[in-house]
Write a protein that binds this DNA or RNA. Structure first.
Lengths: 99, 99
DNA sequence: CGAATATATTTATATATTTGCATTTGATAA
DNA sequence: TTATCAAATGCAAATATATAAATATATTCG
């Protein structure tokens, strides 16, 4: 890989995407969204047992940094992984922290 | 993957490891350490053109969170990836942020 | 030992993040 | 229209993080 051909803006964008993922709740969210699953804000906030607004906040961060996409359907908004390969990051880091 | 069998402590550890990586300078550091390369603090601080103390700080964070290991040899301390698979994270996130 | 080099730590300041509450906006149905 | 459910936003307090300057520690060499 050519990380060091990365200019500061690219490093910044990569860091921002990782920073978006680097939070316990947000890692858990990504865990629920593997294999192309789509979930609503309410579903996630009930699964994680955290406030609706907090959930929305986390989802907004993940969307803003390019980790998730969303699609409104009626009253619900479904969130899902923008790049399915992003599951690998969570996979890799959980494996590395197990040992 | 079984992210959601992860208990809060494991999520926390995974998040901390990602948080350690999620910084432009620290991503650049990991870029220099791919393929098992080992570099000293001074080499890194010169490569990145940042303060020695700042460099040491960043390396300390990466080591503390389990991303890097270090080995002292004489006056120098060499830093290197603890799990070579961690390069994949940087790889994946840089690819995802390119598009 | 004292000097030089490499690394780490401490400290202070600036900046950013997390969280929940209250509110608002959006969509549907009665 | 009004009521209701779903999601997003603004705000504020608490907490965490980043940076650099100064200082401290460790190692080697003369």
């Amino acid at each position: 890989m050519k990380v060091n051909e990365l200019n500061p803006e690219k490093l910044e964008r990569a860091a921002n995407m990782l920073k978006a993922i680097a939070h316990p709740m947000r890692i858990a969210i990504l865990g629920y969204l593997e294999d192309g699953k789509k979930l609503t804000v309410t579903e996630i906030h009930e699964l994680l047992n955290i406030e609706q607004s907090t959930t929305s906040h986390h989802l907004g961060i993940l969307k803003d940094k390019g980790v998730l996409s969303s699609k409104r359907e009626g009253k619900n908004t479904y969130y899902f992984l923008r790049h399915c390969s992003l599951s690998n990051i969570v996979d890799c880091v959980t494996k590395c922290t197990m040992g």
